[in-house]
């Protein structure tokens, strides 16, 4: 009896909770390290990037306005759903990165554990980073961190070990405070990113909170860096691009910037706070 003929997946973009093809109609070949064909991924265009920013902006007030407890549960739910799909992600990583079964499984597990770590921060970072301020006057004064807004991310572009983990290490911290995200996936290994978007779509993450673009970071990043409705730019994975030019473009609207760093960014509270704004409120106390 012949082997069952498999059904390959069409890998598309993830914008505003839907999975459209690139409006440009373009695709590019995703191949194994040895050059074998894996899939045709969407080659996102400038227009796709703009659509993604519109979707992220529309989703911002809802996600930022959700309670910290609720955001924490949604982020934890992602880990739960990922856990059930470990085999799928490991297979994609093995094929795409040429990783061993052990390496692929380890990357998936690390990514899931990282989601859980960040999920637990949603209702804690405010206490750690905020303050009650003893001003010299009859005022109740406090400072709290709030989400910056729409964060554009260039995910790590590493030859190995980062196609899922690098994505999670950059996207998850931006979501903690209530930001919404447009992420440009690892160009050479985009399968995990699209599969992750499918997980997000089934994990109670509101549409538009995470928008995933596949394609060329060198082509898309300049449009995101210059986009006036993007508030912050995470260039973690942009080390091989003309990232100084991207920072210069971002300066036109004074975006918050995280500069490139090699490898997978390590987990930290600082990564959460990089996409927050401190709001200080002075409340007058009446004179009794």
């Amino acid at each position: 009896m012949a082997d069952r003929l498999s059904i390959p997946k069409t890998y598309k973009l993830a914008i505003g909770g839907a999975f459209p093809r690139s409006e440009s109609g373009r695709t590019y070949e995703v191949v194994t390290p040895k050059g074998a064909f894996l899939a045709n991924a969407a080659l996102a265009s400038r227009k796709d990037a703009r659509d993604a920013v519109v979707a992220a902006r529309a989703a911002f007030s809802g996600w930022a306005g959700a309670t910290a407890y609720n955001r924490g549960q949604v982020l934890y739910r992602i880990a739960e759903v990922l856990e059930g799909r470990r085999a799928q992600f490991a297979d994609e990583i093995r094929a795409s990165e040429g990783a061993t079964a052990l390496q692929a499984a380890a990357q998936v597990d690390a990514a899931i554990d990282l989601w859980v770590w960040y999920a637990g921060w949603t209702d804690k970072f405010t206490q750690v980073a905020g303050s009650g301020n003893p001003v010299a006057g009859p005022y109740f004064n406090l400072s709290v961190p709030e989400p910056t807004g729409v964060v554009a991310i260039v995910a790590p572009q590493e030859p190995k070990g980062a196609s899922l983990l690098g994505l999670v290490a950059t996207v998850a911290p931006a979501l903690v405070a209530g930001n919404t995200v447009v992420v440009v996936a690892d160009r050479a290994h985009p399968l995990s990113a699209i599969s992750l978007a499918e997980v997000l779509a089934t994990s109670d993450v509101p549409g538009g909170v995470v928008n995933v673009l596949t394609g060329s970071p060198a082509e898309i990043a300049p449009w995101l860096a210059a986009h006036a409705d993007v508030n912050a730019l995470d260039l973690s994975g942009a080390g091989a691009l003309d990232w100084v030019d991207l920072e210069i473009a971002a300066a036109d609207t004074l975006k918050r910037i995280v500069s490139p760093e090699p490898g997978v960014p390590s987990r930290s509270l600082q990564r959460i706070l990089a996409f927050t704004e401190t709001k200080t409120v002075w409340h007058t106390k009446s004179l009794l």
Partner: peptide
């Protein structure tokens, strides 16, 4: 970044 409720233009070294 700074919101004044029933006051305005208050500054203090302890207040971000």
């Amino acid at each position: 970044g700074v919101i004044w409720a029933n006051t305005f233009n208050r500054f203090d070294p302890s207040s971000p």
